[in-house]
Design a protein around this nucleic acid. Structure first.
Length: 473
DNA sequence: ATGTCC
């Protein structure tokens, strides 16, 4: 059924499932493919049946089972005849990663890592349903939905330079706060400026290895340097927005007579009110997430300032790995406007794209690939080759191989914590169960995932960061 | 991921 067509590329032919409009493509190694559940392959095939899908239904090497679309899925739809689907974005709209760099070295930070993590844990609220020490009014929330990270910067959280180093400058155009329900606002307002739970984290790390000196220098990275990685999304706001609009889109599927192999692929034709309204609400959630990461980054800088004085902590970059965006891509020799859905997939634009910030333009955008808790993360650089293969996309992380429930049965939080402590990694979490759910063993090895995208030329390895301490939900 | 089932 899966045909190997090249090294690390497998194709799922149109004939695999009735209704497929395009083939499926998995960008994955043989050994990682063995870890992919059959259901995930099925989801790749299901996405290929959606109206207006262009080229292929794609899966990155960290692919696993998701809601409707696989996590690690990339699908692009033409404006004329295509659809937009919340399943292709995910519940945590604009879940993403940002990386701050410092001019501190691992030798300076390691001796105080325990206190530093305790301070970060205290200052940056985390956990399920955590509430913020920031109190925004309803109109301020509306402004954040519209302006994203810029709203936070204008409120004094961070600098103009931060915005230049955010994907989309930290703001998706077309956000429509009128499509955000009262319920979503009610959940999102008190959580604005919180980390969340699950695989979300704030990690103090250091650059353990540099693979490409020239690009690392361009990103401001050097061996032994301390960095901070923040991984979080749109909290209850994005979750509620997704839930609300799934309900509307389930009806739209019947209204517009769309034949779906799975109800979880609920969608609406681009241009219909249902699709436009979801897109407006999704953009609002994406902007909330960017502002959220911006606020958290600011508080992180404040904590570092207490310990290390007036330390500079520029933003290396901020990537969105759960989002749908309008982008121009070459299709059969023509430039077309496409709705690119990346769910658990990172944009990987090389030098030829004007979306890459000016100071990275000659090398490509940074990609931030978090490892699982206690394992290395990677900084990659976008490559033009990705435009040919994946609409300019690559992997987003390690990818789960064990369910949360199974992980809780298999591991104990206290033991996971002790084992990390033995490696010198300080861990703080609101709930011990989260540590069991996020045990390093429940994820695919991140280095294997990164090797595949590097070998395919989707993104280039630049540096590896090693955890010193982590604050979690 | 998520007020982990209104």
């Amino acid at each position: 059924m899966l045909n190997k067509i090249d090294e690390n590329i497998y194709e799922l032919p149109i004939g695999y499932k009735e209704g497929m409009r395009v083939p499926g493509r998995l960008f994955i190694s043989e050994s990682l493919l063995e870890m992919v559940e059959p259901g995930t392959i099925e989801q790749v095939a299901n996405v290929a049946t959606l109206p207006g899908i262009v080229k292929y239904s794609m899966a990155m090497p960290d692919a696993h089972l998701g809601y409707g679309f696989p996590i690690g899925g990339v699908a692009a739809f033409r404006e004329d005849g295509g659809v937009i689907s919340p399943g292709g974005v995910g519940f945590d709209i604009n879940c993403g990663v940002r990386l701050l760099r410092t001019d501190l070295t691992v030798e300076e930070v390691r001796p105080v890592i325990s206190d530093l993590i305790e301070a970060l844990f205290k200052e940056i609220p985390s956990g399920v349903g955590a509430t913020s020490r920031l109190h925004v009014s309803d109109s301020e929330l509306t402004e954040a939905f519209i302006a994203g990270a810029r709203w936070a910067v204008e409120e004094g959280y961070g600098t103009e330079g931060d915005l230049e180093h955010c994907e989309e400058n930290g703001c998706l155009k077309g956000a429509d706060p009128s499509q955000v329900s009262t319920k979503a606002r009610k959940r999102g307002r008190p959580q604005f400026g919180t980390l969340g739970s699950g695989n979300h984290f704030l990690e103090v790390q250091y650059v353990g290895e540099v693979y490409d000196e020239r690009i690392a220098r361009r990103f401001g990275l050097f061996k032994g340097q301390v960095t901070v990685m923040i991984h979080c999304g749109s909290r209850g706001a994005g979750h509620q927005i997704c839930t609300d609009h799934l309900e509307v889109l389930a009806k739209a599927v019947r209204k517009y007579n769309i034949d779906l192999p799975d109800k979880q692929l609920a969608c609406a034709p681009i241009g219909t009110p249902e699709a436009t309204n979801y897109f407006g609400a999704m953009a609002a959630a994406a902007n909330y997430a960017w502002a959220n990461r911006q606020i958290i980054a600011h508080w992180t800088r404040e904590v570092f300032a207490k310990y290390f004085g007036d330390v500079e902590m520029p933003l290396v970059y901020d990537v969105a790995h759960n989002v749908a965006k309008i982008e121009e891509h070459m299709v059969d020799g023509r430039l077309e406007r496409l709705y690119v859905h990346r769910k658990g997939a990172t944009r990987s634009f090389g030098p030829s794209r004007r979306e890459v910030p000016q100071d990275y333009r000659d090398v490509g955008q940074p990609l931030l690939i978090p490892g699982s808790m206690g394992t290395p993360s990677y900084v990659l650089c976008g490559q033009d080759r990705a435009l040919e293969l994946t609409f300019g996309s690559a992997c987003h992380g390690s990818g789960r191989i064990m369910s949360r429930s199974q992980a809780k049965k298999t591991y104990r939080g206290s033991e996971v914590k002790a084992s990390l402590q033995r490696e010198g990694i300080k861990v703080m979490a609101t709930e011990s169960a989260v540590l069991a759910e996020e045990a390093p063993e429940v994820y695919k090895p991140s280095h294997e995932v990164v090797e595949v995208v590097h070998a395919l030329g989707l993104a280039k390895k630049v540096a590896k960061t090693i955890p010193l301490g982590v604050s979690k939900g």
